[in-house]
Amino acid sequence: MAARASLRQPSVIPGFGMTFGYAVLVLGIVVLLPLCALALRASAIGIGGIIDVVRDPRVASALRISFGVSLLAAIVASLFGFVAAWVLTRYNFPGRRLLDAIVDLPFALPTAVAGIALASLYAPNGIVGGWLAAIGIHIAYTPAGIFVALVFIGVPFAVRTVQPLIGEIDREIEEASATLGATRWYTLVHAVLPPLVPAILTGFSLAFARGIGEYGSVIFIAGNLPYVSEIAPLLIVIKLSEFDYVGACAIASIMLAASFACLLLINLIQAWSHRRFGHV
């Protein structure tokens, strides 16, 4: 208690020991302990062991697909997500609030439900799929299907990270730019957009990280053909069902490392932007 008291600033508010103690205990048991099990298993396998697993062409292609399609989907989600955030914040049009509420849908809708819905829509006999099949485009059971599912998953991250910042844009900044003779386009590109870049990157990283790990919404639409449309999380499930714990853990640790790298990136971006922009 004495040690902790020195770690925190004195306060008259009660309950620090109780709440913090409980939270740390639960965090340790529910989150950290199980993650340590993976770390332990991964270190037992060793770097060499992990590399051996990844060298397997099927694993390598699954990782490539997961990372590649996630990257593409995160880019598209960030791009359109930014436009959506801008429109929802800055313009007024009928149905704006409804649309704004719908952005959160992928947070609340179970991934499996999204998965079967997307699969039925984009299947060759589905509404969108049938229409696209007529012009020779196949979405379901191809990497394009994975892409569609990951865009769906990524949208709220992309929109919700930039939206509050768009709302906070100081109108005077835009007016100042206009009085200095800048066109609207120049104002947007040089005065409005740059401060939003950290938030856009954060949203992108979140969407990307989420996309790498996404399972439920992807597996129904992907078709899961090895080497073509099989994602890394699915391969973990397959390895587990084959009792190949080494393989499963190797893939899992790579994915976990990628997630942490994203998390670190996000923190760095935020620290940098806080330092740079401060509060003017």
């Binding site: 100081d170 005077e172 007016e175 730019s177 009085t179 200095l180 040089h190 740059p194 401060p195």
Partner: peptide, 26 residues
């Protein structure tokens, strides 16, 4: 017109020199 805003409205992602040069660069 040269307009000076009450809360300055400086571009916080630009250096002082870039802020001043903004209107010319635009």
């Amino acid at each position: 017109v040269g307009f000076v805003f009450q809360h300055y409205a400086l571009f916080k992602h630009m250096t002082v020199a870039d802020n001043i040069a903004y209107g010319l660069n635009a």
